[in-house]
Design a protein around this nucleic acid. Structure first.
Lengths: 165, 165
DNA sequence: TATAATTATGTTATACTGTATCAAAATTAA
DNA sequence: TTAATTTTGATACAGTATAACATAATTATA
């Protein structure tokens, strides 16, 4: 039993595919659904495991890579280069042909937060990239840092004086 | 015969290491020198090949990884997460403990441009990351896009109507 | 409808990337 | 000199990504 959210996701995805003359096959749908359920970013191999656990018919990493490539090109999935993982990207997250969001990625626990940039920020960034000979559209920004949780945990283990072994 | 630039690089690196009580060993020096010569970002394995080609004594990827980790912690080498590559970072490029630069990376040819951000830009970004529970210091920003050269080359091959096979 | 062309997936193999582990060597501290 | 620490050597292996070719499914064309 699919949720309404999932149904809407699939129908939007189908529209996007039809626009470009490509097909939203069953496997591609399933990959989207699995990513939608997970919400959190996963590697292609992790996705393969989840797929095989959730969906009836099995899939190989090779197919997953191909499907991810397709979905990424269709702006339905986003690839986080810094951590080699994938997350669902539309329609809940929305496309960003002209307004790339900022992805905050924790170096330690690899949690991710998507942040919308303000208009002036976008403008400044666009000017900067153009000035240096890079395309603005289709760009994606990843900021690698450390999240509060990981910072406080590091502090704890340091201040408590517990041994590392 | 080492250039003056290389000599100054090494002496600065030595100072940084001495500050933290660590050692700038021969291998570490060599890795720095190879990266300095290359200027362009390389993977750990590519670096290994260059090292073995340039330097007399051979090195294994395992050692290269360890040395890169060390040099990165010392702010002498920068790791570009998005493309899993390393570039020299000091003293020519300078450290950025509190003012992370923006790295423009071409998805197609993987060329890299380092861009200094203005003070207001830094400020806005810092506020944004803090607001979302991420650390500001030690962060690094990578923007994946396409460089002008690759854009025009794509256009050329498309407009000329030449077949893809 | 039959045939050809295109697209998508199956399957296997393999290359590339990164880390764990333990041993040996080199350096520093006592 | 001995002990502790740091660095490197060497091997194995886990994880990531792609190449290549075969088969199946879909679409286009006669």
């Amino acid at each position: 039993m699919k949720s309404n959210e999932t149904k809407s996701l699939i129908s939007v995805a189908r529209l996007i595919c039809e626009e470009t003359g490509s097909r939203l096959t069953e496997k591609r749908q399933h990959v989207l659904e699995v990513l939608f359920k997970l919400k959190t970013p996963v590697s292609a191999y992790e996705l393969t495991e989840h797929y095989n656990a959730i969906i009836g018919s099995p899939i190989t990493p090779m197919s997953v890579y191909r499907i991810l490539e397709f979905l990424e090109a269709a702006n339905l999935v986003h690839r986080l280069h810094s951590i080699n993982k994938y997350i669902i990207c539309a329609p809940t997250f929305g496309p960003w042909k002209h307004h790339p969001p900022l992805f905050l990625i924790c170096k330690s626990c690899q949690c991710v937060k998507k942040v919308e940039l303000g208009n002036d920020m976008i403008k400044t960034l666009s000017q900067l990239t153009q000035k240096h000979g890079f395309l603005t559209t289709g760009s994606q920004i990843e900021l690698n840092s450390t999240c509060e949780t990981c910072v406080s945990e590091t502090k704890k283990s340091h201040s408590s004086g517990e041994p590392n072994g």
